[in-house]
């Protein structure tokens, strides 16, 4: 038996909107730790890892570990029927091939339940090691989204370079080139508007902008985004989900042929 009650149902709606274009089908894993997902895009170039910790739910009952295969487009269709202020409860019985999403309006005057068919998904679970990164950049998520969108109108790839001068986002295309440098800025009153660069050593990596733009669909989940770079690892683009956990996108770099 599984019953997860999320008062801030809009979080789940936002999570779905941020992953459904990247991943078609995925297993949601439910354990005592929380509600999680790990899935790669169909090209195996990007990976998404989501964790919503059990403590973040108003009610969290998960009698035994359960993996539920869902088509994310269908799940999104169902969650779009929930109001932004609705409380969402996810329910499933052991051995059932369906999951139920229950939506309650804040005033309890409307209660809806949507039952969705589950599917068997054969997916490998990857081991992601704890790692030291050469550089970690924290910046406003809206700023990062703007940069990715702007650069994708010029080129297909972005070179992200971190030096002690700051973080530089560069692209080139048929019409020309573009460089955007963001310097460390901690003087602003609001911490979420600051840009903080931790650099152990300079790093420069090239990524497909199409994937970066897809990751920025998670912007509504967090004011800040953290970009962790190392020359030996995929970049990690992380959006913290307030009080609950995170959504992390991993993207393998492009390298010189």
């Amino acid at each position: 038996m599984l019953e997860l009650r999320l008062v801030q149902g809009s979080l789940l709606k936002k999570v779905l909107e941020s992953v459904k274009d990247l991943v078609t089908d995925a297993n949601f894993d439910c354990s005592a730790t929380g509600f999680s997902l790990q899935a790669m895009d169909s090209s195996h170039v990007a990976l998404v890892a989501l964790l919503l910790r059990s403590e973040g739910f108003e009610h969290y009952r998960c009698d035994r570990n359960l993996s539920m295969g869902m088509n994310l487009n269908n799940m999104s269709k169902m969650l779009k029927c929930a109001g932004n202020d609705d409380i969402i409860t996810i329910k499933a019985d052991d051995g059932s091939d369906t999951v139920t999403f229950m939506f309650e309006s804040p005033t309890q005057d409307k209660i809806a339940d949507f039952e969705m068919k589950l599917m068997d998904i054969d997916s490998e679970h990857l081991g992601i090691p704890e790692a030291e990164y050469h550089a970690i950049v924290r910046m406003p998520s809206a700023e990062f989204a703007r940069i990715c969108k702007d650069l994708s109108s010029i080129g297909d790839t972005v070179v992200i370079s971190v030096t002690k001068e700051g973080v530089k986002f560069s692209t080139r295309g048929d019409i020309g080139t573009a460089n955007i440098v963001c310097r460390q800025n901690t003087s602003v009153d609001k911490p979420e508007e600051s840009t903080i660069i931790e650099m152990n050593e300079p790093v420069s990596l090239t990524f497909a902008l199409r994937y970066m733009n897809s990751f920025t669909k998670a912007t509504p989940l967090a004011n800040s985004v953290t970009i962790s770079l190392s020359s030996e690892l995929p970049v990690v683009v992380e959006y913290k989900i307030a009080e609950m956990g995170y959504i992390r996108f991993y993207l393998a770099p492009k390298i010189e042929d």
Binding site: M40, H44, E124, T157, A252, I255
Partner: peptide, 14 residues
């Protein structure tokens, strides 16, 4: 030209 690496080039299966 650039070669796109894959996630599996970095992370192994659990």
């Amino acid at each position: 030209s650039c070669l796109q690496r894959k996630i599996l080039d970095y992370f192994g299966e659990n």
